[in-house]
Design a binder for these strands. Structure first.
Lengths: 171, 171
DNA sequence: CGCTAAGAGTTGAAGCGTCAAGGATCCGGC
DNA sequence: GCCGGATCCTTGACGCTTCAACTCTTAGCG
């Protein structure tokens, strides 16, 4: 992101690319809002807060250290710190010292937090399915994955793709 | 968005869908940040601010009424109002009464605003090409458009897809 | 052993978006 | 001709994210 080609070469998008770009930016603006407002309405959570809880819930011990949690939930450490502070205030998460490294802090999902995820997840999945997958063929789903991976690889070369894979690295 | 199926039916995503969903959420989180920070760095503008200026510049008279501009730049009217206020302070945009309807306000791109777009657009397009299109085949580009349209149609049924088409409706 | 550099996490301030409220103008029925 | 509702836009407050310090800890190196 720091080094990138910005050579001025007015080489515009062709019509097919332009159409695709329009569709992509439309998604970029509208899908997060849709997810956020549904989540806010039915669970009183932001989409990112839910994601943090969900990631914790998918781990064997409901525990993840902050820096890992930040990566797999696609957020900065600073953002996560603020969010976990809020979630802790609401009783969904608890923070404790990691045993090995004196610098590390583990976020732990509380029972209430787990209950919240269990209560919220099905509706969330249904909504995602309704907005995205119900309208796509199998081939399109496969294509979407390939396209997404390609773009992600270009934004952040060598970045981990699957959150679960990152979580499994946990000590 | 107000009415949607939330019947609790724990019908999870299959592996292919899950992989696609991971890729899509990755894009949803990371692509906007990447675009925003590049735009901030090279032009001192947010991506949304740039979009507003760009939409105005593509219009024959560099003029669009606020409500239309809000739609084609994928934002709420309130957001646009704040943003145009900032852009006006910077001298890139001017606001004037629409002649026909006493309620309508036209946003007009100033000469400085046009110059800003002209200076910024090539680098932006190159960056978009670099992040997105350089990694995709023709078939994938076509597929991306279809997928995007499908999702957008489901988020907001009957919404206009092509900004240019909306702009052409301008009186 | 110190001593410096790098990593982990937190904090506070500043900026932006959303939401709810409000003022202004237009339209439709009576 | 006028009153009620709808449309267009703005405003202010609040909440969240980012950014830039800052603290505390660990690792490397002489």
């Amino acid at each position: 992101m720091t080094t990138c080609p910005e050579a001025e070469d007015p080489h515009w998008l062709d019509p097919a690319e332009r159409a695709a770009w329009l569709a992509l930016t439309g998604i970029l603006f509208r899908l997060p809002s849709a997810l956020d407002s549904q989540m806010q309405r039915v669970a009183g959570l932001s989409n990112f807060e839910y994601l943090v809880l969900a990631m914790l819930s998918e781990t064997p011990t409901q525990t993840l250290r902050m820096s890992q949690l930040a990566v797999i939930s696609n957020g900065s450490l600073s953002r996560l710190s603020h969010v976990v502070a809020r979630l802790e205030r609401q009783g969904y998460v608890r923070r404790e010292q990691g045993p090995a490294d004196g610098r590390s802090i583990n976020a732990v999902l509380t029972d209430e937090g787990l209950a919240k995820v269990v209560a919220t997840a099905p509706g969330h999945v249904n909504y995602v399915r309704h907005l995205v997958f119900d309208g796509l063929t199998e081939e399109q789903v496969a294509s979407l994955e390939q396209i997404g991976r390609s773009i992600l690889e270009r934004i952040d070369p060598g970045a981990p793709f699957d959150p679960a894979a990152v979580a499994r690295l946990a000590p």
